[in-house]
Write a protein that binds this DNA or RNA. Sequence first.
DNA 1: AGTGGTCGCTAAACTGATTTAGCAGAGCAT
DNA 2: ATGCTCTGCTAAATCAGTTTAGCGACCACT
Lengths: 341, 341
Amino acid sequence: MGSNRATLADVARRAGLSKTAASMVLNGREGTRLSAEAHQRVFAAAEELGYRPNLAARSLRTRKTATIAFVSDIVATTRFAGDLIRGALDAARERDHVLLITETQGDATFEQYAIEAVLDRQVDGVIYAAMATRRLTVPPAILGGPVVLLNATSSDGLPSVLPDDDRAGRTAANTLLELGHRDAIALIGRNRLKEDDPEVSLAARARLHGIRQALGDADVSLLAECFCTEWLPEHGYAAMRGLLGRSTRPSAVICMNDRLAFGAYQALGEAGLTVPEDISVISFDDDPIAAWLRPGLATTALPHEQMGRRAVELLLDGGVTEPSLVPMPLRRRKSLAPPAQ
Amino acid sequence: MGSNRATLADVARRAGLSKTAASMVLNGREGTRLSAEAHQRVFAAAEELGYRPNLAARSLRTRKTATIAFVSDIVATTRFAGDLIRGALDAARERDHVLLITETQGDATFEQYAIEAVLDRQVDGVIYAAMATRRLTVPPAILGGPVVLLNATSSDGLPSVLPDDDRAGRTAANTLLELGHRDAIALIGRNRLKEDDPEVSLAARARLHGIRQALGDADVSLLAECFCTEWLPEHGYAAMRGLLGRSTRPSAVICMNDRLAFGAYQALGEAGLTVPEDISVISFDDDPIAAWLRPGLATTALPHEQMGRRAVELLLDGGVTEPSLVPMPLRRRKSLAPPAQ
DNA sequence: AGTGGTCGCTAAACTGATTTAGCAGAGCAT
DNA sequence: ATGCTCTGCTAAATCAGTTTAGCGACCACT
C-alpha cells in the first residue's frame, strides 16, 4: 500500500535544503530563522512531489499517532452504535484524527486483546464506550493515557459523557401534564434490575426519577406502574394488555423506551383503541421505529451523535471532569393529545 | 499513552544477547541457528519485562501495520452497518489485525480526506463498503494496495462481497408457491430507479429477477405489482391500501424490504385483516423490526455479519476474484400460511 | 598444516521522520 | 584586529524495531 512515496529527504533535496529545514518549514515551526525564499522552495518541492509524511516514522519519534481508539462493549446489537461512531468520526476528522475501532463483546479475553492492540499502536487516547448507559470498570492498562467514558461512568473520576435521562424523564411527564393529563397517567417499563444496578443501567433510574419529580411537583401520582423483565415490544404489549384489563383506563402512557411503546401500540390496535384519541403515548430513545409508527410516536431522543462528538472533544481538547450531560430533545409527534373528556 | 514500555533492547540486554537475536527469537524466524537456551532466555526476559513491540517502529521497517482500513459511504443511517463492522472486526481480530474506520458520507472532499488519512497510516489493505448494495467507482488512489469491495461492485474487477439477492428472490417466491399460493401473489416495492441504476441499487433488480424466475418456472404470474418511490413504511402502507381497494384481494404479498412490509401490516391492521389468515407476507432484510411485528414477519436475512467477515478474509487471505455471493437465509416466522380456501 | 564448513551469534545499516546542538558568515562595537 | 551577536542554515542523534553481512570458534578431512 502506498509504496513509492516521496520522503522528506526527497523534498529537501529538491528544495536544495537540509531535511531539518524542510521539516521545520512543513511543520510551520515558529522561531526558526529560515528565509522566506527557503519556505517557498520547500512548499513548492513538497507540492510537486505530492509529499505526504510517513506517520509511522513521525510517531516513532513524537509518540503521537493522530489516532484515537474507540473501544466498546458491543457495537452491533444496537442500532444506536452507528450514531455514536458517526459523531466521534466527525469530530475526529475535524481535528485531523482517525478512529481505531475495537469491540470487547463484554468478554475479558477479547477486552485484554483489544487493549493490547490499541496500546501497541500508540493511540493518543481511548474512548471507552458502553452501548447501554451504565457504570463500568475501566481496565487499568489504559489509564496510562487520556480516557473518556462514552455513555458510561466509572468510579475512577474519569471524564464521561452521558445522556441527560433525568431531565428527559421530567420532559416526558411535563409534556403530558401540559396537555391536561393528571391522574390517569400510567408507566410501562419499571424494572428493579435496571433501576437498582448501575452496572446494568443508569437510564432506568434517572428516567424514573425525572418522571416522579415532575409529577410530584404537580402533585400528581401515577395511575399504574407496569413492571417488565425486558424492554422489548412483547413486554410492552403484555403490559398494555394488563392496563386495559383494569377498571380505570389510562388517558396517557409513558413507556420507558420506544420498543415498549411499539408493543403498547400493538395491544391498543388489537383492542380497537386509537392513539392519541383514546390514549396518548410518550416514550424515550427516538428509535427509527418511532417515526414509522402510525401515528408517529412522541419521544425524547438519545443524542448519540452529539455524545460521540462530545467524547472526542473532551479527549482531545481536554476540559471538565464532571460528567458531561447531553440533553435529550423531545420529538413531538402525533401520539399526543389532551385527555378525552 | 503507554510511556515507559520495555524495548527490544531491554529484552536483549536482560537475556544477555543482541537485539538481532532477540528479534529473531520473538519473531520465530526459521533457519536461525540460535540455541535452545538462547530461545529460553529471550522468552523469559520478554515475559518478565512485559515486552510488547512498538508497532510504529516495526512498520517503519516492514511497511506492514496489521491494520485494515474500513472506508464506507455511510455508517450511521442504516442499522446494518453495525453488523458489517462486527463481522469485519471479528475476522480481523482472528488474524491479529485491527480496523481503522472512516466515512466518506458520499462527499468527494471527505472521501479524499479519508483516503489520505488511511494511506498516510500505511494500512495493509482497504475494505471499501457501501451501505446499500450497489455499483460504485473506487478512488484510484487506493488501488496501490489490496482492496475488497463490501456490499458493492465496480468495473475494476476488484474482489467483492455481495448478498445473494437473486437467490433470495427465488426463495421468497418459492416459499409462497410451496404453501399453495399461485395466482393471487402481489409484489410491493417495484422501483424503476433502483432496478435500472446499478449505482443506486443492485438488490432491487436481483430480487425482482429471482422472484420472476421462480414464478415463471411454476408458470405463475403476479397478480399485481406496486411501485414505490422509496422503500419506507409509509410507501408500503399506501401500496397495501391500493391493493385492498382492488377487485381481487391478494392471498400473499412479497415486499421488497421489511420496512415496506411494516407499512403493509399497518394497512392490513386498519382494514381489519389478519396476517397470515387473510394474507401471507414475506419480505427481505431481516431488520430487527421483522421479529417485533405481530405476527413475526418471515423474511430473507441480509447476512451482514458474514459479509463483513468474508471481506476481511478475502483481503488478508487472498482468493477468488469473481464476486463472492453470500446466501440470504430465510427466517420463517408466523406471517406465512396456505391461502384461505 | 591448511582448507572448508557449520554453528552460534553480533555489529551495523536501514526505515523516515523530529530535534538538538552547533557552524559559517555578516555586521557591529571596542 | 578582536570579540560579540545575530542570521540562516545543517550534521548528526534519536525513536524502536528488522535485516544484511559477516565474525570467531570449532570440527573434519586431506
